[in-house]
Nucleic acid binder design. Structure first.
Length: 583
DNA sequence: GAGCCTTTGAAGCAT
DNA sequence: ATGCTTCAAAGGCTC
């Protein structure tokens, strides 16, 4: 694999970024077409698992791939989406954005400064330090500019503003994913903000030189406020209160800093601008508001723990006289990879489907998640990792435990002593409930089950060419599942949940969630610990959908070996499958 | 209006 | 070290 990334400073899996995704995408398209007939067979098979990953679903993907123009039904969605979201989605669609030369850098170097910046637009020292430390490749504006906090010059902030352009226009050496200007469609920013600059020679949008942009930045707060936030989930979505933008707009040092999607998510998505002016309690000591901080009015319960960041304790509550504890802001947990993915893809799924219920949507998303390629998942893992890092930096004293008990506990009425059969039955019912007719729009075909399970260092897996090999090795060792206690293993097959990896929900007594997984799961790999630090590559059961699709339509040579292993596994474990599917 | 449902992942707690 | 529990998002649904 060509290594075009000379830098490689960041661990975003840049090494894999050189994959010619365009070629691969084309290949996948062909495969897609070739296997259309096989998809029919898929449909038949799918009935065994109460899944309907039918043509509809697959065609969705294919259509998405072929659609050159943004779908109208996504317009509204896209209106509220940030560039990052769009970039990711396109990348995943592989279609009208099929040339992510840098899958490891699927994220936009968007200057989102909602958070790392102080209210005056200056990057907070801590944030700046953090950014520079964590994102060596982060296109932080000129050192000169940022390093001189006193510099009021907008130019220093505008330097190297991420350019928005089609991925296929990205210079091969550009480690930044750019995106189409169309993402601004909802509210086309002032022309001077146009993320694209046509190259006079080629006519191709190119990344403007910082010098070309600097004069235009930073935007006035008002102007910025009129611009649709480039960072998707920052913008209110479907009534999402968390990311609403105040009427007056928010001070958004828009061009101040180029950042990748990781930053986008870290900063924008999680750092709601609306908190900046109104919620002092949501302001970190660094002056960085964080969207993870929820107004006490939204979520506050008396039994909150006292593990907040010291800065949090000192916050004054805007609310009326309430107990100090009640005034503590609720710092939400950083989103994990899947959550990020969900946020990114939910609207798309909703648009593609008639489904409205989140439960159903989530099921689809769960399967899509598994259908993602290693690289694609790794992007989210990396993003999540950075989000956690930033979160920990912003709230050093915060602990996940702080939020324990702040949410009503789930109903525990569900027969904790349920027998496996109970599980099975319930699963079936729930499958029917949530993935019946409408699942037609369901997941994509899981052309290849992605069994990447929250690698401790996703990027490492990406970066390492050996990763696939290791993967094969593990994948080719279904026996590893025997390392698990038989009981657990049993549970494994019956509930479709990994024993060790414990996607937690499985253990939930209510457990409906995991146990309701409609797919057939085959424990693969050494799922021992669910700890992210030691998460095996394949600790998660493979959705049957992914499995059988894998066998029918291997997506790419890259996965063929893995698929082969899958196949072998499938053949070697027929009983399990039969048992399950005959349920 | 509170909570459920559903998904995966991370983290904390208990053993 | 391992397993279980809780929470994170989302929005329709149920009670």
């Amino acid at each position: 694999m060509p290594q075009l990334n000379g830098g490689g400073g960041d661990d975003l899996g840049a090494n894999d970024e050189m994959i010619s995704f365009k070629d691969e995408g084309e290949q996948e398209e062909k495969i897609s077409e070739n296997v259309s007939a096989e998809r029919d067979l898929d449909d038949l098979k799918s009935s065994l698992v109460n899944e309907s990953e039918n043509n509809s679903s697959s065609s969705d993907s294919e259509q998405a791939e072929r659609r050159p123009q943004p779908r109208p039904d996504l317009d509204s969605y896209e209106k509220t989406r940030d560039y990052f979201s769009e970039a990711l989605r396109r990348q995943q669609d592989g279609g009208f954005f099929k040339s992510p030369h840098y899958p490891g850098y699927p994220f936009l170097m968007i200057p989102d400064l909602t958070n790392p910046y102080l209210s005056n637009g200056a990057l907070s020292p801590s944030a700046r330090t953090y950014l520079q430390m964590k994102w060596p490749l982060l296109d932080v504006p000129g050192a000169a500019g940022l390093k001189d906090p006193r510099s009021p010059t907008p130019g220093h902030l505008s330097n190297k503003v991420p350019v928005v352009q089609h991925a296929h226009h990205v210079h091969p050496l550009t480690p930044l994913i750019t995106y189409s200007n169309e993402h601004f469609s909802p509210g086309t920013p002032p022309s001077h903000l146009s993320p694209e600059i046509l190259d006079p020679k080629t006519g191709i949008p190119r990344t403007p030189h910082p010098s070309e942009l600097s004069p235009y930045y930073p935007l006035s707060p008002g102007a910025v406020g009129q611009i649709p936030h480039p960072l998707g989930w920052l913008v209110p979505q479907q009534g999402q209160h968390m990311y609403s933008i105040p009427p007056g707009g928010f001070r958004h040092p828009y061009p101040a800093l180029a950042m990748n999607a990781s930053m986008s998510s870290l900063v924008s998505s999680r750092f709601s601008p609306h908190m900046m002016p109104h919620h002092p309690h949501g302001m970190h000591q660094t002056g960085i508001p964080h969207p993870a901080i929820v107004s006490p009015a939204i979520k506050q319960e008396p039994n909150s723990h006292d593990h907040m960041s010291p800065s949090m304790h000192s916050r004054k509550s805007p609310g009326p006289a309430k107990k100090e504890e009640d005034k503590k802001p609720h710092i939400k947990k950083p989103l994990n990879a899947f959550m990020l993915y969900m946020k990114e893809m939910r609207a798309k799924v909703v648009a593609e489907c008639t489904l409205k219920e989140s439960a159903a949507i989530n099921q689809i998303l769960g399967r899509r998640w598994h259908s993602l390629s290693r690289e694609e998942q790794a992007k989210y893992y990396e993003l999540a990792r950075k989000e956690r890092q930033l979160h920990s930096q912003l709230y050093p004293g915060w602990s996940a435990r702080d939020n324990y008990g702040k949410r009503k506990k789930r109903k525990r009425d569900n027969k904790p002593d349920s027998t496996p059969e109970d599980f099975s039955i319930r699963n079936k019912n729930q499958c029917v409930q949530y993935l019946p007719s409408e699942k037609m729009c369901d997941s994509p075909a899981s052309s290849h089950g992605s069994m990447l399970d929250s690698p401790a260092t996703p990027s490492a897996a990406l970066a390492s060419p050996a990763a696939p090999a290791a993967t094969h090795s593990e994948q080719a060792q279904p026996l590893s599942l025997t390392t698990k206690p038989e009981g657990r293993l049993h549970h494994h097959f019956l509930t479709g949940k990994p024993s060790g990896s414990a996607s937690s929900s499985s253990s939930s007594s209510s457990s409906s969630s995991s146990s309701s997984h409609p797919s057939i799961s085959i424990p693969i790999g050494t799922s021992g610990s669910h700890s992210s630090h030691s998460a095996p590559i394949f600790s998660r059961p493979i959705p049957f959908s992914s499995l059988h699709h894998s066998m029918l339509s291997p997506p790419s040579p890259f996965h063929q070996a893995a698929l082969h292993s899958h196949h072998a596994l499938f053949q070697s474990q027929p009983l399990s499958l039969v048992t399950k599917s005959s349920d």
